[in-house]
């Protein structure tokens, strides 16, 4: 599977990662190697096989739509990088 540095830049952007030029060389090489490994899957014909998403094929369990959690806002926000008046602070996104 051919993968060039432009592809890797695009993948990094999709993954919200910033990679330097020197890292770009390393990742282009190793990602291509991994895709080669993964390409071995193609020796098996899987036409018509139903995909297995999960080991337990049973449907997910449902529960009553009831409030079961207590309010933990204070505890959760104590470990946040930046908060104010009960809100998480991030850089301005709306002008």
């Amino acid at each position: 599977m051919a993968l060039d540095p432009t592809d890797v830049r695009k993948i990094a952007e999709l993954a919200r990662l910033e990679i330097s030029d020197s890292e770009l060389t390393i990742y282009t090489h190793s990602l291509a190697q991994i895709l080669d490994l993964v390409g071995q899957m193609n020796v098996v014909d899987t036409t018509g096989i139903s995909p297995m998403a999960h080991p337990s094929d049973s449907p997910l369990r449902l529960r009553q739509d009831l409030v079961t959690e207590q309010d933990h806002r204070e505890g959760f926000q104590k470990i946040a990088p930046a908060t104010e008046s009960g809100l998480y602070l991030v850089p301005k996104v709306i002008e």
Partner: peptide, 28 residues
């Protein structure tokens, strides 16, 4: 980071069937 990128790639538009779906079938 390498694994996140592999995942982002195989799940991206145009590659999903060739990788993710194929792998799920092989898993079966």
């Amino acid at each position: 980071k390498r694994r996140i990128m592999i995942g982002a790639y195989t799940l991206s538009a145009g590659y999903y069937d060739a990788y993710y779906l194929k792998a799920q079938q092989l898993r079966r």
